[in-house]
């Protein structure tokens, strides 16, 4: 028996919007730790890892570990029927081939339940070791989204270069080139507006903008984003979900031939 009640149901709506472009079908794993997902895009170039910790739910009952295969487009269709202030409860019985999403309006005057068929999905879990990154950039998530969007109108790939002075995003295309430098800026009124660079050594890596733009669908989940870079690893783009967990995206770099 599984029963997860989330008063801030809008979080779940935002999570689905953040991952459904990248991944079509995925297994949601439920354990005592929390509600999680790890899935790669169809080309095995990008991976999304979601964690919503059990403590973040108002009620969390998960009698045994459960893996529920879902089409994310269909989950999104169901969750779009929930109001933005609704309380969302996810329910499933052991051995059942369906999951139920229950939506309650804040004053309890409207209760809806949507039952969705589960599917069998062969999931490929990657072991992702903890790593020391050469550079970690924290910046406003809206700024990062704007940069990715702007650069993708010029080129297909971005070179992200980190030095002590700042982080540079560069692209080149048929019509010309573009460089955007964000300097370290800790002295802002609000911490979420800061750009902070933790650097062990300078690093420069190339990535496909198409994927980074897809990651920025998570922008509504967090005011800030962190970008962790090492020359021999996929980049990690992390959006923290307040008090609950995170959505992390991993993207394999492009390498000069």
């Amino acid at each position: 028996m599984l029963e997860l009640r989330l008063v801030q149901g809008s979080l779940l709506k935002k999570v689905l919007e953040a991952i459904k472009e990248l991944v079509t079908d995925a297994n949601f794993d439920c354990s005592a730790t929390g509600f999680s997902l790890q899935a790669m895009d169809s080309s095995h170039v990008a991976l999304v890892a979601l964690l919503l910790r059990s403590e973040g739910f108002e009620h969390y009952r998960c009698d045994r570990n459960l893996s529920m295969g879902m089409n994310l487009g269909n989950v999104s269709k169901m969750l779009r029927c929930a109001g933005s202030d609704d309380i969302i409860t996810i329910k499933a019985d052991d051995g059942s081939d369906t999951v139920t999403f229950m939506f309650e309006s804040p004053n309890q005057d409207k209760i809806a339940d949507f039952e969705m068929k589960l599917m069998d999905i062969d999931s490929e879990h990657l072991g992702i070791p903890d790593a020391e990154y050469q550079a970690i950039v924290r910046m406003p998530s809206g700024e990062f989204a704007r940069i990715c969007k702007d650069l993708s109108s010029i080129g297909d790939t971005v070179i992200i270069s980190v030095t002590k002075e700042g982080v540079k995003f560069s692209t080149a295309g048929d019509i010309g080139t573009a460089n955007i430098v964000c300097r370290q800026n800790k002295t802002v009124d609000k911490p979420e507006e800061a750009t902070v660079i933790e650097m062990q050594e300078p690093v420069s890596l190339t990535f496909a903008l198409r994927y980074l733009n897809s990651f920025t669908k998570a922008t509504p989940l967090s005011e800030t984003v962190s970008i962790s870079l090492s020359s021999d690893l996929p980049v990690v783009v992390e959006y923290k979900i307040a008090d609950m967990g995170y959505v992390r995206y991993y993207l394999a770099p492009k390498i000069e031939e």
């Binding site: 095995h44 170039v45 990657l126 072991g127 021999d232 394999a252 390498i255 000069e256």
Partner: peptide
């Protein structure tokens, strides 16, 4: 020219 690498070049199946 740059070549797109895949995640399997970096991570192993768990």
């Amino acid at each position: 020219l740059s070549r797109q690498t895949g995640l399997y070049s970096f991570f192993l199946l768990a």
